[in-house]
Amino acid sequence: MTAEPITLRVNGQHFEVTVPPNRLLLDVLREDLRLTGSKRGCDDSSCGCCTVLADGVPMLSCVMLAASYQDAEIATIEGVAENGRLHPLQEGFCVEGGAQCGFCTPGIILVAKALLERNPNPTRQEIAEALSGNLCRCTGYTQIYASVEHAIRKLQEAPVGSGKA
């Protein structure tokens, strides 16, 4: 098994890394690209802490072979804030106390972001279902749902990219 050069597109940037074919995307992100926002939780595809977006779709980077995702646009938590301004979801987690230890937060924010792009006004039940694969051991989820709902309100007032603060 020899390491081979691969190209990944992460948060809009191209990266060239030389990795063996059994290298997981999570490891490339964390160790090669030093994007440590994506977390290794269970290492068993059960917890959701390593969630990234591939072409806008939430996926678990702990079961993704990096070399298999060279055609995809990968987004990690590091790419969610724009121009130094927090995304309304990140703001929601600050305001509503959605993060305690914070380990599950990056994955949850990315799943919530994908949800709101498909469904800008989900019910609490729909939010809970979308996040049902993301385990949080601290919050009991209530503050997480409130954080997402905060973002829903903010996005309705001023959609991202509208130029309004």
């Binding site: 595809s45 779709v57 678990l60 979308a130």
Partner: peptide
């Protein structure tokens, strides 16, 4: 099946 994120994959 599994969870929403796993069903995406």
């Amino acid at each position: 099946v599994a969870s929403p994120v796993l069903r995406n994959m």
